[in-house]
Computed example of a mutant assay.
Amino acid sequence: MAKRHNRRQRKKLHLGEFQEFGFTASARFTLEPSVDQLDALLDSFLEFVEANGMMTAASTSDKFDAYLISSAARGSPTEDHRQLVRQWLDGRSELAGIEVGELSDAWHPVEK
């Protein structure tokens, strides 16, 4: 039987009406980028993300990987945010094989 939580517990645990979502984005590099090119790509991506009301954890170790959430104190990105990120990544000539994941629970990911 599933444990029932009161409103305060649901808020603290990000459950029910307080559930928050995020999504992944990834791409591979078309050519091996230099450190300066990676820095410029990340700086540009961070500016784009912040300008569109989101926050991200991004990496460029062997490919471009990012996880995005809303920058609102309590909120989630929308389908429109996913499409904006896809369009931004599609517009970068140094990236290919772009994948943008579905919205999923940001606090309690489903293990595969």
Score class of each variant (00 low, 15 high):
residue 43 D to A: 06
residue 38 L to N: 05
residue 9 Q to V: 02
residue 99 E to Y: 13
residue 2 A to N: 10
residue 8 R to I: 10
residue 9 Q to M: 06
residue 88 W to Y: 14
residue 63 K to P: 02
residue 92 R to A: 05
residue 69 I to Q: 12
residue 13 L to K: 13
residue 3 K to R: 11
residue 20 E to G: 01
residue 105 D to W: 03
residue 88 W to R: 04
residue 63 K to N: 13
residue 68 L to G: 03
residue 48 F to A: 02
residue 104 S to V: 09
residue 2 A to D: 05
residue 29 F to T: 01
residue 25 A to C: 10
residue 77 P to N: 11
residue 86 R to F: 08
residue 56 T to M: 08
residue 58 A to M: 07
residue 29 F to E: 04
residue 8 R to G: 01
residue 35 V to A: 08
residue 83 Q to P: 04
residue 54 M to G: 07
residue 10 R to F: 01
residue 84 L to W: 08
residue 38 L to T: 09
residue 51 A to S: 14
residue 24 T to V: 07
residue 20 E to I: 00
residue 103 L to V: 05
residue 71 S to T: 08
residue 23 F to E: 00
residue 63 K to W: 14
residue 36 D to M: 11
residue 76 S to K: 02
residue 64 F to T: 02
residue 34 S to E: 13
residue 90 D to A: 08
residue 99 E to F: 14
residue 50 E to L: 02
residue 69 I to K: 13
residue 86 R to W: 08
residue 83 Q to T: 12
residue 12 K to E: 02
residue 110 V to L: 15
residue 99 E to D: 10
residue 77 P to Q: 12
residue 71 S to D: 15
residue 89 L to H: 02
residue 16 G to E: 08
residue 95 L to R: 05
residue 27 A to M: 05
residue 89 L to M: 13
residue 86 R to H: 07
residue 29 F to G: 03
residue 39 D to T: 13
residue 31 L to M: 09
residue 11 K to W: 11
residue 5 H to A: 01
residue 29 F to A: 03
residue 96 A to H: 14
residue 16 G to Q: 05
residue 73 A to G: 15
residue 76 S to C: 09
residue 25 A to D: 04
residue 66 A to M: 05
residue 18 F to T: 00
residue 101 G to T: 01
residue 36 D to W: 09
residue 58 A to F: 03
residue 57 A to R: 15
residue 47 E to F: 05
residue 56 T to C: 13
residue 18 F to L: 02
residue 24 T to W: 09
residue 4 R to V: 08
residue 4 R to T: 09
residue 92 R to C: 08
residue 55 M to Q: 11
residue 70 S to T: 10
residue 85 V to R: 01
residue 83 Q to D: 13
residue 36 D to H: 12
residue 7 R to P: 04
residue 10 R to V: 01
residue 14 H to R: 10
